[in-house]
Design a protein around this nucleic acid. Sequence first.
DNA 1: GCTTGGGGTTAAGGTCTTGTTAATGAGAGA
DNA 2: TCTCTCATTAACAAGACCTTAACCCCAAGC
Lengths: 236, 236
Amino acid sequence: MPETILIVEDEPALRDTLAYNLKKDGFAVEAVGDGRSALASARTLKPDLIILDLMLPELDGFEVARILRKEMTTPILMLTARDDEIDRVVGLEVGADDYLTKPFSMRELMARVKAQLRRTRLIQEEMAKSGVAQVKQEKLTFDNLTINLTRREVTLNDKPIPLKPKEYDLLEFFARHKGQMLSREFILERVWGWDFIGDSRTVDVHVRWLRQKIEEDASRPKRIITVRGGGYRFEG
Amino acid sequence: MPETILIVEDEPALRDTLAYNLKKDGFAVEAVGDGRSALASARTLKPDLIILDLMLPELDGFEVARILRKEMTTPILMLTARDDEIDRVVGLEVGADDYLTKPFSMRELMARVKAQLRRTRLIQEEMAKSGVAQVKQEKLTFDNLTINLTRREVTLNDKPIPLKPKEYDLLEFFARHKGQMLSREFILERVWGWDFIGDSRTVDVHVRWLRQKIEEDASRPKRIITVRGGGYRFEG
DNA sequence: GCTTGGGGTTAAGGTCTTGTTAATGAGAGA
DNA sequence: TCTCTCATTAACAAGACCTTAACCCCAAGC
């Protein structure tokens, strides 16, 4: 439900500030520090907006933007250090949707993020209006398991699986972080909310319910793997 | 065919500079100096983008933007004199897509104009690809339920169903977003308006009334489905 | 084999969401 | 101004859902 934002910034201090402020405003935030992880995260996370620093280790922002542009229409907000890079950033070469020149104020960034997201929503609206209301349905697919983000519905072998709200949230979160080991604390923070006070065993219970619904054999899970002493890992 | 840009700026010097530079880059430019003409031009000209100064005689930029937003999705780039107006400009109150704080460089303006237009073009391509009809739809039909958009009338089994204004708005909105989960907040924002302050339970009540009128068995709805923890979903 | 600790499993409250109804208020039109 | 319609909100009921806590089981180390 909350909109997801991917931050790609190698400088830890700025990255944290960005993440903090966006979270405070109710966004689901994921932050990475290099180009290669950026690609990976963008692909599995399917964020609603990407904040991308131009200067990056491994694979610079130019490259990342160019690649992502071919794969998705997700709006990209570029962070540049030098004013004279603007032309390349916004031009056909990269195709960012917006940019900010460092240093910038957090207020300005928030304003631009919101403007960008609102535009996206407006456009979808427009598409719906101009005819058959078939907006593209966003989905995450793993074999015979599909999570339809637009419908907030999960199907297994094309049969809808009724999930309780928290189960769905949890599964979506797992799916967006496929292959990563996720500690109970991390899951609680992101799915339940930073203000959740309670037992981390709560996660276990929900995992069990999920397993019963999406695993072939819940007692021998293949999708949601237990990492003893660590947490869980979703394998797809 | 060149893209058309409408400039709304009361200061002649700046207006001419803007027009000159945009023309030089191949845009078709129309420039006006006050809010009232802005509305008129925007309506007849249907520009691809509007550059709108905040401070205007007759009708200020806030008002102009607010009015135009309800009529069209044309991207609006706001020019503001003061940094602290950003929040209002980009916020829900006005809904500009981008803004520039005076003074700004022409290069920066051009960059933002192009970014904005680029995105619009991208989206249109996307729309074309997904085969969305260009023609305005007159009716939306779902089995035995028909929504006549031009007449603003709903029939079930060819029998007209009397709907109250908000009920109709809500139903049309659902219909245009068939298959999408819609949160109460989203519905409120779109059907009630950006500026609606109030209880999200309001939606529930209207949904109930709608269900009573268009569902076969209102207590076991097949069209307007409750998505627990999420909102509602119209299934057609 | 035994011990230990983490994870699995279950069911009982307690809490939160939604459905439903009715009263109040706002606004249009007579 | 009065009347009527419609929108909004409050309040309660019903039921779905979440959390906790208790108990069980298994894996790994001894």
